[in-house]
């Protein structure tokens, strides 16, 4: 299959997240109440060609472990969707703005 992959990388629970804390404070000072637990992560999207679903998952998992996330400080999860003809065409012919 040809897959569209989404990877989400976040600091491990309990790890101090200075960016998240700063944003939370900013929202608070803007008057938004009741906001808590803000964490900032990374959202990475890409396409992978060829192979069975399980095999692609294995490769993506390895990519996450080796490069996209640092297991010492970060956790990750990912999702796969089959790239349909429609999506491919939309990407290829994208007319910006």
């Amino acid at each position: 299959m040809n897959a569209r992959v989404e990877v989400f990388v976040q600091l491990k629970p309990g790890m101090l997240d200075p960016q998240g804390e700063t944003l939370e404070r900013a929202l608070e000072s803007m008057g938004y109440e009741g906001v808590s637990g803000m964490r900032v992560g990374k959202w990475i999207t890409f396409a992978v060609e060829g192979g069975e679903r399980a095999e692609i998952e294995g490769r993506v998992d390895e990519m996450c472990r080796r490069l996209l996330a640092n297991p010492v400080i970060e956790t990750y999860r990912y999702g796969l969707a089959e790239a349909g003809l429609e999506e491919t065409a939309a990407d290829g012919g994208e007319e910006a703005r």
């Binding site: 101090l16 200075p18 640092n70």
Partner: peptide
């Protein structure tokens, strides 16, 4: 060196951002 696993731990973004 930490990314390569030669030294333990990691270096995160400064707390002052």
């Amino acid at each position: 060196l930490t990314e390569a696993g030669l030294l333990p731990g990691a270096l995160m973004r400064n707390d002052r951002i």
